[in-house]
């Protein structure tokens, strides 16, 4: 090969190379301008005080009770909706794929999951207000048909559980979409091999099936967590600014400098990036491990 690379060929090669860069350049410039720089700018701003000097005070400021409470409720809602969404999504996906349900049903659920996982934001909030709001259909039916007044029992759509139930509407479908290929990856021969070796179906799941799914499950769990943690539109439309979660706090800060400190706002954002970034690193590490298994 190398001996054929004579001088006459060299310019052609160079031109081809620059052409490749020309093709990739827009993507890279775009990523730098709209992903890297804005993020780095915020990270930088988090270390700058109001006079332009270096400071760690902004991160210390994250320790104020209001902000700690916001992080805490955000983590709880994201965690609850991720764990419940992952468990329920796994159960539904298992029922669909391994439960011998009609084949057409699976296609329908997959399509619906595609829709529902993208049906987040303001309209989703409207749907749940119509369902579980004070005048929502489910609330009214439970009250007048079954005699259960969920609001008297302490339920509130604009609360931790209300938001969690609402988030599940896009968390469960997302879990189904991501975990279904992993369940498909469970070979029929594995359960057959286990059964010829004397294992009951439960023993197969206990020792083989669920352990194989475990990395995918954990990985998707962290993805769901990050997904809920950054979401704001649903919560904002549902509760206005009454619920003190981090994205809503940040929204208020961007709108009108609610914290009266731009540096603190940047630190708030960096905190969010750290948390969602950590969840996603967990996802990447675990899913790489799962892929190695399923080769």
């Amino acid at each position: 090969m190398t001996t054929l690379d004579t001088g006459t060929k060299a310019p052609a090669k160079k031109r081809a190379l620059s052409f490749e860069w020309l093709g990739v350049a827009p993507f890279i410039v775009f990523a730098i301008m709209f992903l890297i720089l804005p993020t780095l700018y915020l990270v930088g701003a988090a270390f700058v005080d109001e006079k332009g000097g270096f400071t760690l005070a902004n991160f210390a400021g994250l320790g104020t009770p209001q902000i700690v409470a916001a992080y805490w409720i955000s983590i709880r809602i994201s965690g609850a909706s991720a764990i419940l969404g992952a468990l329920i999504g796994l159960a539904i996906a298992l029922a669909l794929i391994r439960g011998k349900l009609p084949l057409g049903l699976r296609a329908a659920v997959m399509t619906f999951s595609g829709v529902a996982s993208n049906f987040a934001g303001v309209p989703l909030a409207f749907a749940f207000i119509s369902t579980l709001g004070r005048l929502g259909l489910a609330t009214v039916i439970l009250k007048f048909v079954f005699g259960i007044d969920i609001y008297k029992a302490g339920f509130n759509l604009l609360s931790f559980w209300g938001l969690t139930i609402t988030y599940l509407y896009f968390q469960i479908p997302l879990m189904i979409l991501i975990i279904a290929p992993a369940i498909d990856g469970l070979k029929k021969e594995w359960s057959e091999a286990a059964s010829t070796l004397g294992a009951t179906p439960w023993q197969f799941w206990r020792y083989v099936g669920l352990p194989i799914l475990w990395p995918s499950f954990l990985g998707t769990l962290s993805l769901l967590f990050a997904n809920a943690f950054g979401a704001i539109a649903t919560a904002y439309a549902l509760t206005g600014s009454s619920l003190n979660i981090v994205p809503i706090l940040l929204y208020a800060q961007i709108r009108g400098d609610a914290l009266q400190n731009p540096g603190l706002g940047a630190a708030l954002a960096v905190g969010m990036i750290l948390i969602t970034g950590f969840a996603n690193v967990v996802y990447l590490v675990i899913s790489a491990r799962a892929e190695r298994w399923l080769k």
Binding site: W190, E192, A193, L197, V208, W293, L294
Partner: peptide
């Protein structure tokens, strides 16, 4: 005892 075409070893063990 059974042996399968595609080995079917449990990948997690």
């Amino acid at each position: 005892g059974m042996v399968f075409q595609a080995y079917a070893l449990f990948p997690n063990l």
